[in-house]
Amino acid sequence: MTEVYKHIHPSKYFNDYINQDVRPDGRDFDQQRDVIININGITSADASAIVKCGNTTVVCGIKLELARPKAEEPDIGFLISNVELLPLCSSKFRPGPPSDYAQVISNIVSDIVINSKCVDLKDLCVVTDKLAWVIYCDLVCLDYDGSIVDACIIALITSLKTLSLPTVTYDNETEEVKVDTGVKIPLQVHGLPVATSFGIYHKLPRNIILADPSAYEEEMCGGIGANLIVCWNKGLFCGIQKFGGCNLSTEDEKRTISLAKQRCKLVEQVIETCIKNGEVK
């Protein structure tokens, strides 16, 4: 019965919940969903991680390749990340080339990872000007229920932390490359960026901040893409992004920044525990 109201009169449905200080899925405004991480699930990838934030499921798979470095930057390797919003994860996405929204998310994730310098690209160079590693990180969303950037960043960082590069020997005279998969060196990851999404719901007299919005709440707060994304990296504030949507007062901004800082600590703990358990096995 209530499902029918959700489709006929979505704003009233949502307002009724907000007026009682609760969200449609039962959470408080500041409460965030649980994070579940699984590593090394995919054996065909060189490193992988599956992250679930509530219903939102993102799989990250890393594939390593070798290539010749660029002529103008001969001593650095490549780190390329792409986010794929599949048509199967939600009816909002159609098959075919990536939509505008998918490209925007891809760009945000790529910017966060590259600007946080968590991987030093100089580590990826094998022989200057001849051979360098290319790390292809492919993030695939299997179930879209809001906060996609959070889940993508967690999956990406976790799989980078579990990645190890095989040793490469390069013979200068014959230009022959030999790769030994038996001896592997783990990749050095500095820092741990964590992103937190917030939705801002327009309500008089004051706008309401909803932490970790689900897909339905994102739509109510101004459509997908109108989220506020705050990013922390091990105690250092590293980014804040907001594209359109409702206004944000300064106290609310401070509150979101401190909420994001707390979440950063929690996510770090989860990732460390997961990796430690993985190693024990």
Partner: peptide, 18 residues
């Protein structure tokens, strides 16, 4: 053009394993 691309000549490292 709608995605980030790696270098065109990148090959899987498995080709060079024994």
């Amino acid at each position: 053009y709608k995605r980030f691309n790696g270098p065109e000549d990148s090959v899987s490292y498995k080709r060079f394993t024994a």
